[in-house]
């Protein structure tokens, strides 16, 4: 006698294993990427309104609530970066004949490029202020 039983999928499936939870956090991290993009637009807009508007905006951002909020955001954006870089060797594997270039090499290369670009930005920023 056939009477297949279908088990329902619980709404809390993403809490069943740390990998699933990390996946959900990674998906959530995209929201913070958009948030920081919009925040940058606001910053540029204030700068366009003049020096006083800009300094008022920056003063507001020094509030402890804002700093805490942006630290949480930073953690999510770093998670986003980490998982994004880890994706690269899977999406675009590099081959040398039979050998695949190890995933770690591709991931490390991206972090190094990010580091170099960041350093250039910081140096340019320091030079202009």
């Amino acid at each position: 006698m056939r009477r297949p039983y279908r088990r329902p999928m619980p709404k809390t499936w993403w809490l069943k294993h740390p990998h699933y939870t990390l996946f959900m956090l990674r998906e959530l991290s995209a929201v913070f990427v958009i948030y920081f993009a919009l925040w940058t637009v606001c910053l540029v807009q204030r700068a366009g309104q003049g020096a006083e508007a800009l300094s008022r905006f920056l003063q507001t951002m020094k509030g402890p609530g804002w700093i805490l909020w942006h630290l949480i955001g930073l953690a999510f954006v770093l998670l986003h970066t980490y998982t994004w870089f880890a994706t690269a060797p899977k999406v675009m594997p590099v081959r040398r004949g039979a050998e695949k270039v190890p995933d770690g090499v591709i991931i490390a290369a991206q972090w190094i490029v990010l580091l170099i670009v960041s350093v250039i930005f910081v140096v340019l920023l320091a030079a202009t202020t």
């Binding site: 990998h19 899977k90 999406v91 675009m92």
Partner: peptide, 19 residues
């Protein structure tokens, strides 16, 4: 990506799908 974690033959289906 959990498909690739449990794969006993290291097929890495997640990589195949992204490609």
């Amino acid at each position: 990506g959990e498909c690739s974690e449990v794969c006993p033959k290291h097929v890495d289906p997640a990589a195949a799908i992204q490609q």
